[in-house]
Design a protein around this nucleic acid. Sequence first.
DNA 1: ATAAAATGATTGATTTTGATTGTTTGATCG
DNA 2: CGATCAAACAATCAAAATCAATCATTTTAT
Lengths: 252, 252
Amino acid sequence: MLTFERQHAILNLLQKQKIAKIAELIDATGASESTIRRDLSELERQQKLKRIHGGASLPSRKSDEPGMSEKITAFTKEKERIGALAASYVEDNDSIYIDAGTSTEAMISKITAKNVTIVTNGLNIINTSIQHDFYTYVLGGYVKTGTHAFIGKAAAEAMQKYRFDKAFLGTNGVDLTFGYSTPDPEEAYIKELAIRESQQAFILADSSKLDQTSFTCFGSLKDATLLTDSNKDTLEYLHKLAEQTSVEAVKI
Amino acid sequence: MLTFERQHAILNLLQKQKIAKIAELIDATGASESTIRRDLSELERQQKLKRIHGGASLPSRKSDEPGMSEKITAFTKEKERIGALAASYVEDNDSIYIDAGTSTEAMISKITAKNVTIVTNGLNIINTSIQHDFYTYVLGGYVKTGTHAFIGKAAAEAMQKYRFDKAFLGTNGVDLTFGYSTPDPEEAYIKELAIRESQQAFILADSSKLDQTSFTCFGSLKDATLLTDSNKDTLEYLHKLAEQTSVEAVKI
DNA sequence: ATAAAATGATTGATTTTGATTGTTTGATCG
DNA sequence: CGATCAAACAATCAAAATCAATCATTTTAT
């Protein structure tokens, strides 16, 4: 079993059960105790999980402990870098769609092109977009709890009135055969429409999303350009992806 | 059982029953008395619970403490009072439209009715609405700088797909002959539609808006119930208004 | 073929745990 | 009011579990 696969198996198990014991992880992966411990150390360093005596748990929220702000900025570095890469594709006079999500939010402040119009279905995107004085348009719709994305029939109908030069979307999973996927079917449908209504689509996905699948597929790999980050763990998988679609990866 | 699990189990049990005895916690977790005591010490240090002789209880909230409630009630302003008045009109299962603006924002936290659906075109309203766990729908549209209201053709079209039990709107001016008015024609149009699409409309206006006119009229006095505040200066004007429409005024 | 990286076993150090100890608390009764 | 007793408590200690560091071996990349 590949290191990369194994570490994702650990994170997957952690998402199903909020905590996992070492023995469970050994059982689930077939690796030795030493290897599991090394994985946990590495994943904790990446802030993907939190180690506890006897196993691991999902990372605690930022508000839990004081003095976390530095770690947060370290954790968002990947997203900032990917955001900068995405922003470099935006040209003067573009009309672009920006999907709800934290990855996509990071790109807005990096956009240097002039006279850009931003259309979005994300509450966080609106806030950031008006902060940076972009022409901002909002899809209507039902506000989903959690992601605060505007979805549903109203959002879909509004979407079809626009044509975008480019669309920038987040995702929960990138898989060689299943393509791009996200848990909520309604959200997936909006993403699907965005890809359809845009001349060029980009998927922003940090490396934790690679080799993952969620409930609903919203596009195949070739439908969009994948923007992600590369490190020694993901390099091999990125090569496989590159056979099917165009990939741009920033070094971390 | 892991330390982390056990401590969560303790906090869970405490949320169901506000206090728990040591014996109950031993029974619930299977750990020894020493371990439970250590957990309680640690959790008390984290302010997650309060130890009492024989067990533990939930920590007292700030609002429970003496001297806090007075500060909260003492800090009530005009808009808060008008907001509370407006909120009192909202009934169970209502679908209501809430206009962009600070006056209308104040009413949201005061709504006590159950199963309320909120439709809005205001960025600030969305934020407050989801904070209070209402079913929230958003009109799409162009984001106007300043008020952060969603306006334009898309907003108008979206508006026409809804029928509201009640609509709550802000205004810039209330005038005996010109009615209700606001500077931006696009915003005025959305307000006009909101009044048309609702069974009952309310205008929230603090007394500084009385006897004022703005560029665009969006309704005559009789189209809506005026919610405002009264003092000795405005009393006379309110009487004149009351001849043409229904007025509710809170004493300041 | 060689170097680099990942793995698994082993070791000693650290943490957690439950039992035991003596002390403190709070209720009961004279 | 104070003496008395049982329950609750904190402190300590040894055993068990978990952990980090090390090293030899295997796998992978060049």
